[in-house]
């Protein structure tokens, strides 16, 4: 009460002014046609614009849910694709086209941190061990490949980007089938180098480079990029092919982690091969 009185002593004039002015303006709006119309109109406009803003915010909030839904839909479609299934048929042209089982399945994930400027780029995903992610799984984005999972925690995973000095990914020229290894020279995040394409291969600038499916990390035929430059160093038997990525890794948001259902079998065979 004392504080209130003090407030009145200090700001009494101003408060009285505000009160009287408020009464006057209220009367002006209440009893004059013109003022009333303008006030009502302005109020309507303000309400409409507030509503529109709220709507936009709602849309934006709903967007995350929509992305997750669409990721799920994409995964369902991707898993039905030919390159994601294992064919039991001995001959490709037998009529038992349904005689196939899932080979690759996908886990949708969001990128939570990313880098493209160092020599050993990695990025992090918001899915981990609890969601079935394991080290060694491939990661693809909407347009093309993105990296390989290095390590996982319960809820997150660390991915070695294809823009990493030690990244080695098998890829092939789509038109001819010659395959090589994709590496990164640590310079531009837009280009990779495709090594070990033999000298006799027919190669043109603009040829499409896709994953070969040999590495069991990615299904075959996932887009990587286009041949931008072909170099044949003197005395070498292999081309140095510069590949322009379709995938802009500097704005990676939503990715899919590739899970190979028959990975254990490959590992068993690898052990035999390495003995």
């Amino acid at each position: 009460m004392r504080g209130l009185l003090q407030l009145f002593a200090t700001y009494g004039n101003f408060l009285l002014f505000l009160a009287l002015e408020g009464i006057a303006l209220f009367m002006a709006v209440q009893f004059n046609h013109r003022q009333r119309a303008i006030w009502g109109n302005s109020l309507g406009l303000a309400a409409a614009s507030t509503e529109a803003t709220v709507d936009r915010i709602g849309d934006y909030v709903g967007l995350r849910e929509e992305v997750i839904r669409l990721q799920g839909a994409n995964i369902a479609l991707m898993e039905q694709l030919d390159n994601a299934r294992y064919r039991n048929a001995i001959k490709r042209d037998t009529a038992f086209s349904e005689a196939s089982e899932p080979l690759y399945t996908f886990i949708g994930a969001n990128v939570v941190s990313n880098e493209v400027t160092s020599l050993s780029n990695t990025f992090r995903l918001d899915k981990g061990r609890l969601h079935g992610v394991e080290p060694g799984m491939g990661v693809i984005a909407t347009e093309g490949i993105a990296g390989v999972v290095l390590a996982v925690s319960d809820h997150f995973s660390l991915v070695m980007s294809i823009l990493h000095r030690e990244s080695r990914i098998k890829a092939e020229i789509a038109s001819s089938g010659y395959f090589g290894t994709l590496t990164w020279n640590g310079k531009s995040p837009r280009y990779l180098t495709l090594e070990a394409i033999p000298k006799h291969a027919a190669l043109l600038e603009g040829d499409t480079v896709v994953t070969s499916g040999y590495s069991n990390l990615f299904p075959e035929g996932i887009m990587v990029g286009k041949v931008a430059e072909i170099a044949l160093p003197a005395g070498e038997n292999f081309y140095q092919v510069k590949v322009e990525l379709v995938n802009d890794l500097s704005r990676l948001r939503y990715v899919y982690i590739v899970e190979n259902q028959m990975r254990e079998e490959h590992e068993q065979l690898d052990e035999v091969a390495n003995e």
Binding site: L25, A28, Q30, N32, Q35
Partner: peptide, 20 residues
């Protein structure tokens, strides 16, 4: 003045402002 002019509130607002 507003009562004479039939514009209740308008002169009041202006005069109150001036008084302040």
């Amino acid at each position: 003045v507003d009562l004479f002019y039939g514009t209740l509130g308008i002169h009041t607002a202006a005069t109150t402002f001036m008084g302040y």
